[in-house]
Design a protein around this nucleic acid. Structure first.
Lengths: 340, 340
DNA sequence: CAATTCCTGAGGTACGTAAATCAGAAACCA
DNA sequence: TGGTTTCTGATTTACGTACCTCAGGAATTG
């Protein structure tokens, strides 16, 4: 059997109360005694029984998630994952609230952040637009002692505790690597479509993409990025316009949402003429892959992101540092052959 | 606060003992009373506190992992993940033993399986060669009431409880999809290198690959598969030989191990002449990607596989069915741009 | 030397569930 | 009717940790 606090007390020759004081960092123990206890812990290989500790503590972690409203499939998938996490709340000792805000509206985010009650909430996770007022709002929360995790899109200028999302520079580089190989020696233009350059994930993808296209791929030249606010209709128009203006487009990279518009534009164009890479597995992008109009979809698993955010916020609330390696979110590449 | 068994007892108008009998499926309760208790559970939304239940049960799950010995990097990575899981044993209430066996040796696997003591072990996970004697050995374990999970390579003819690994047919299709696009209209031969056709994962990858190459890719013709027993030196010789015999090889798919040999063969050949797809991220395959000799690496996360096997074996030992969606292992595609 | 602070021991309760025992009550069979 | 079986209630102990109180010894201070 694994050792318990009683075994530690016996091994160290001290009382149970003293072991407890040492293990929980409470005051009133001489350094020499602390050492004795820690030596016993090391000798017996004692590990705190988390089940029992949680039971005894009866601690709960009230968390708030802030996500944008609107038809964006990815965001709706994210919200679904948060709701799934709420279902697991009893087992995880969390108590989760979802706050939805209009998309691309920094003021609305700030309003939500500012009404968070530090007495009742231990952590906040949000999908942020990268603007100074949101950064300031996050910093105010952090000053109040609330840990903040950014979801999907980071807020590099803020003092947020953690970023739960993919390395978007690498995602852009990956898209470029795929398109470079898919175009295999053909030369021409590659159209880049973005949602909003106020989102740090879009900025990073665009620059990672541009870096690889210009330095490692020969014969391709970037057009754009054109901004569409992730609106399908605007994506469609942007693509139509660009195609008309540039007959030598050979590839398209949509680093934002609104893939429905891209799909429509492609359906009207020559099938198979373009190498197309988009982001996020949704019903629309699955359809694009299945029909051969999209070649690859780069994906981030929002379920992982939500679960990671919860783990990180809980750990930080307990004063622990999360394991960086464990919390890394991977960049998934899907072709039609490996769609789940 | 969330409801406890006491609340259920009060709500249902029965005693604590009766609630306990119902919740734990013990006999001695009239159906009518069972219904009353279950209604109360539903009404109050009672969820068993897993921490407390585990604490009270004090249950441990003794598990055995069977993995092949030898220099295969992937298998060593797998073993490392199992050892990492052993470190977490106290928290997860598992007690894990690792048994190593010579690779490609069905008799050795069977010997290990047959010495497993049903009284002391609740579950076994193994990397299996797909032969009738191993299947029979697995079935004998299942007959003894021990749940068996296959790791990485499945045993479709057996009554194993669960397969923890990727869909290798889809993996082969994915490799074909990538190579088809990377070769972009060039035509010629694609060399397929395999480890052993006694491994069901290798068989599946080969047939998934062949299916897509023949039906969806035009201009490519398969050479092989050549069998190498995952030995780097034999891979090198096989590739050298095939290259000499077929000057029109444009692509190589190594669906097994021994990538070191492939790397050596490619280093001697014309750089960039071949589209190369291999399996499993290891030091060697990272090097291949970084140097531009490999175009893509298809990977299965062995950490996920080990953790999934543990979850599944624990759940089945408790008589629960694991959630199929949650235990699916994804097929990862890595280019040099998205290597973790 | 007395007073005070610091350190430690002893003992208890609580968390929510599991599992056991014992004693009645009700329902059944002979 | 007596005896048995089946169901249920009441009560207790245990799991390992957290956290509390109280008391007394040791060390330090004035």
């Amino acid at each position: 059997m694994r050792p318990t606090v009683h075994d530690i007390a016996a091994e160290a020759g001290v009382s149970l109360a003293t072991v407890d004081r040492v293990l929980n960092g409470r005051p009133g123990v001489r350094q020499q005694t602390v050492d004795k206890v820690e030596a016993a812990v090391a000798r017996l290989g004692y590990v705190r029984d988390v089940s029992a500790a949680n039971l005894a503590k009866g601690r709960v972690y009230p968390l708030v998630f802030v996500v944008p409203e609107g038809p964006n499939s990815f965001m709706r998938g994210l919200e679904a994952e948060i709701r799934a996490a709420m279902q697991r709340s009893p087992a995880e000792r969390t108590s989760i609230t979802i706050e939805t805000v209009p998309p691309f509206d920094p003021a609305a985010i700030v309003a939500v952040l500012d009404k968070v009650d530090a007495a009742k909430v231990t952590g906040v996770a949000l999908v942020a637009t990268d603007t100074p007022e949101v950064s300031a709002g996050v910093d105010r929360l952090v000053d109040k002692g609330i840990h903040v995790a950014t979801l999907v899109s980071d807020l590099p200028g803020s003092r947020r505790t953690h970023f739960c999302g993919i390395d978007n520079l690498a995602a852009g580089r990956t898209a470029a690597g795929l398109i470079g190989r898919f175009c295999a020696g053909r030369s021409g233009k590659v159209l880049v479509v973005a949602g909003s350059m106020a989102l740090s994930d879009h900025i990073d993808r665009a620059s990672g993409f541009a870096a690889v296209i210009t330095s490692e791929v020969t014969g391709l030249e970037i057009v754009g990025p054109v901004e569409t606010n992730d609106d399908a209709e605007r994506v469609r128009q942007a693509v139509d316009t660009a195609m008309a203006a540039n007959p030598d487009i050979v590839a398209i990279y949509n680093l934002g949402a609104g893939n429905r518009g891209l799909l429509e534009a492609l359906a009207d164009a020559d099938r198979g003429r373009y190498a197309v890479v988009v982001h996020e597995v949704t019903e629309v992008s699955r359809k694009g892959l299945a029909e051969g109009l999209f070649d690859a979809v780069i994906n981030q698993d929002c379920g992982h992101e939500v679960r990671s955010a919860i783990r990180v916020l809980k750990a930080r609330a307990d004063g622990l540092m999360p394991l960086k390696a464990q919390e890394r979110i991977r960049i998934d590449i899907f072709l039609k052959d490996n769609l789940p």
